[in-house]
Amino acid sequence: MRDTVLITGISGNLGRTLARILHRTEKVAGLDRRPFAGKPKDLELHQLDIRKKKVEDVFRRGEIRALLHMAIMHDPRLSQSEHHSFNVLGTKAVLEFAAKYGVQKVVVLSSTNVYGPRPDNDNFLTEDAPLLGSQNFPDIRDLIEVDMYAQQYMWKQPEVETVILRPVHIVGPHVRNAPSNYLRLKRPWVLAGFDPMVQLIHEEDAARAMQLSLKPGARGVYNVVGPGEVPLGTVLRELGRQPIPVPHLLARPILDRLWTYRITGFPPPELDHLQFLCTVDGSKAEKDLGYRPSFTLRETIRSVLDEAPARANLSVVI
């Protein structure tokens, strides 16, 4: 019977949050090369690299109703070719299997980083804005390629309901991505004289948006926003941080050095996020998917302060 929702990248921090939410209402299976710490007993995990041939077997059984594809990695220390191979080839492989074996719904998790922070951005980018994120940050080219591939797929496979979600910076007690790690710094760098508006979304809100896109009939590209826009400086003040203002002309060369010598984990091109706008209009997702954030702005900001329970304890939560 076709009743299973397959989540790729399920063992990641966001993947486990999503699994926890979805598991209440759906039959969930996972596909990840990493083990799933604290996996619920009735959740089937296929511990495989998504590029492996055996992945086809997972689809061949014909049980999969929907594919939630979030096995897209972004580790700026890893080589470009590894990124490209895992993200682009991996995405192509699972999406093609989905079409071949009659999966009705495919949801791809992209992000608003594909638009890129730019001085001449509209304050609220809509889904048809050009994807210029790699212009100043070539290392994320593969993330844009994944988004573009998914858009092509949407047209090429009209019988599959494809949804591309582009959430804003995801934060929360569990996620460990670049924005949430930045907000966890006690003395984060800021660029002197710049204080762009930022948008954050709580990990559970992002997961709920993915859940809502499983709704029959939903298809298209959607920006997914949290509870509003706020200056970066205000976020840091709310968190009690003591930011270090660095002149932007110095910050880049300094960070370049620190990055080269592996003293920092903060990729220099990400400084653009501290300088320019990359904020989006999320009204389309609200209208079509019925998505609304459930966390307030303050709760969302403060969620990075909640230390996640140790991974092994997650089973208690589930």
Binding site: P119, P196, P231, L277
Partner: peptide, 26 residues
């Protein structure tokens, strides 16, 4: 002007007093 957001101190000052980059969409 579209280059205003690249100017330190000017950029956030304009934003806080309600001035917006002049794109047609804005």
């Amino acid at each position: 002007e579209r280059w205003a957001p690249t100017l330190p101190f000017v950029a956030p000052f304009f934003a806080r007093i309600g001035q917006v980059v002049g794109t047609p969409e804005n």
